[in-house]
């Protein structure tokens, strides 16, 4: 796993072409590596967008109106959850809990956490992504 994290950090995703090399370096089968890569939600097999918008959709954020924020973000970016825009600008992802549950709805935008999202803040933040 530390190896996969490092590769994803470096390249942004784990290309299927890397799998045989990882397998032979660790002396395990390609199937084992493929199994691990596909099991964990964090590892992606295609490149992500230049910006990553993660919206929390767990219960505590739902209790504070996360569903409306999710719909709005989806609409503004013209993306569904889990999709990357065609120009490779932004990826919209769901995340299940960032641990900021008293101040939702929460998001993580390019590794910067944001709490108490409202439509105005969301529009401003999404507008800043180039």
């Amino acid at each position: 796993m530390p190896l996969l994290h490092a590769l994803q950090e470096e390249f942004g995703y784990i290309d299927d072409l890397m799998v045989p090399a990882i397998a032979s370096a660790l002396n395990i089968s390609r199937a084992d590596v493929h199994g691990v890569v596909t099991f964990y939600h964090d590892f992606r097999r295609q490149p992500a967008g230049r910006h990553r918008v993660q919206l929390c959709r767990a219960e505590a954020c739902q209790a504070r109106g996360a569903a409306a924020i999710e719909r709005l973000a989806s609409e503004r970016l013209d993306l569904r959850m889990g999709e990357t825009s065609a120009d490779g600008r932004v990826t919209l992802d769901a995340v299940y809990c960032l641990g900021l549950c008293a101040t939702g709805p929460n998001a993580m935008i390019d590794d910067v956490p944001v709490s108490r999202l409202d439509p105005t803040t969301l529009d401003r933040l999404l507008g800043d992504l180039r």
Binding site: E59, G99, C101
Partner: peptide
């Protein structure tokens, strides 16, 4: 691995 929504004490 504090995955539960509504918990943040570990963090």
């Amino acid at each position: 691995d504090e995955g539960d929504s509504g918990t943040f004490a570990d963090r």
